[in-house]
Design a protein around this nucleic acid. Structure first.
Lengths: 249, 249
DNA sequence: TTAAATACTGCAAGATTTTGCCGTATTTTG
DNA sequence: CAAAATACGGCAAAATCTTGCAGTATTTAA
């Protein structure tokens, strides 16, 4: 592997994750840590990233979600986000709902990808603001303190005026019979509106949430075009969905 | 976890909550309190926060900005924001434009003050989200990368539908004859709309910007009801404004 | 084409940093 | 004032960094 390639890879990883561990990279590329260390040293000198003890971080941008809430099941969500990335093509217009899985997706969007991205989520907007090739359009409205997305008539109104290629709908509960359900009524309204504004609905959902039920119904399973989970395709939990949609690992 | 990440996390927490407890952070990050103590010590030495018994607090002025841009003249802006606070009464509906002075104002809003607050600024929205008694309504639209506020037709449209008690209009240039001017055309449009949506227009403005001129005109001085600056009332720079408005130290 | 020069990579030894823990001061609180 | 919480300094283990060196690959030049 050429040095150039390696360094490109490193920059890419930093772009996606905002931080890397020396050992991780060395492991992934099957070279010694010394080599990576030297690469990082060079990239640091070239001001492409910031070298820190144990690895490197991206320049000038914050590594954390702005509101500092803890994210659970980050590994799984990261895997799901990775899969979700494959659905996005250059130049598309997408809609990201709230939720930490989508935040992870936002973080992982490659720096070179050109997109127009609608979102009602404050943390996601902050994250996307750091990506120069992404045009961010924020859905205005009243900010809900705990979900950190905008809700209410104004937001729904704004949603009614758009039509996007793909909507990534962070999902709290999905059930083979009952469809998507949600705890918060205002968010239900938002998600309904998002579905109406999208040609394709993708539902990233960690396994814990599959099969669960909550108070209010958003829509039936038939409205969802793609379900993304971290489970293997043959997992029993997915059987009930097999006659309906596309599923991905 | 990298030291860098940890420290970023700490700064984030301080930026949002204005204060942190040593034990809280240690708990959240699963490291010993000693480690956090050392981090805080370093950050204190780097003047990123103020170390206190049991934790840390943010410095007198705000340096939380998600994109890591530098803020100049913080002292002055802090003083101006303090003055601006006096104009706000419990239960009012206010509109905060972008800019670091307004960000500072947002940070200084007392936690018990009940307000409804409109803003097109992403950093301000993040800051306000941490205050439980403030209802935040975000003006949606396309996010401008460098100013970090929403702009464009959609945002202006949303502004046209509201009427607030006070608008705090972050000001780039104010001139006794030419009025308020701005460099960016899109922001001009936004500010015009904000003025129309407000019963009272307040212009917080550091002395460097008084008397300066930029490319596009927003409005005449007569549209501004209050000018807030850090200068003493008898300063020569203010003479030209004396027959027009209220001025505060 | 061949030989020399140069660049790249992995390894190892010693230096440095990071981190948790412990005992002892210091501060806070009732 | 006394108990509890917090701060501080030193210590040791683990991780990471630095540096020099040697073997291999790549480029340059004759």
């Amino acid at each position: 592997m050429l040095k150039e390639e390696r360094q490109q890879f490193i920059l890419n990883e930093v772009g996606i994750h905002n931080r890397i561990l020396l050992t991780d990279i060395a492991d992934q590329l099957n070279v010694s840590v010394d080599t990576i260390r030297r690469d990082i040293k060079e990239l640091h000198a070239a001001k492409q990233l910031k070298k820190v003890h144990g690895g490197a971080v991206s320049l000038g941008f914050n590594n954390y979600n702005p509101t500092g809430k803890k994210i659970y099941s980050l590994e799984k969500k990261s895997r799901i986000a990775e899969k979700a990335l494959e659905l996005i093509k250059d130049g598309q217009v997408i809609l990201l709902s709230g939720g930490t899985t989508n935040l992870e997706l936002a973080r992982m969007l490659p720096p070179k990808l050109k997109l127009t991205c609608f979102t009602p989520s404050l943390p996601i907007a902050v994250q996307l603001l750091g990506k120069n090739n992404i045009e961010v359009i924020f859905i205005g409205g009243r900010l809900s303190k705990d979900s950190q997305i905008t809700v209410g008539g104004s937001a729904i109104n704004m949603l009614s005026e758009i039509k996007v290629d793909i909507c990534f709908l962070g999902t709290n509960s999905i059930h083979p019979m009952e469809g998507l359900t949600e705890f918060d009524w205002e968010i239900v309204q938002m998600k309904k509106a998002m579905i109406h504004s999208s040609r394709k609905v993708v539902s990233p959902c960690i396994s814990e949430k599959i099969g669960s039920l909550q108070r209010y119904k958003i829509c039936g399973v038939e409205e969802v075009d793609v379900l993304i989970t971290e489970l293997e395709p043959w997992d029993v939990k997915l059987d009930a969905f097999k006659n309906l949609n596309i599923q991905i690992l």
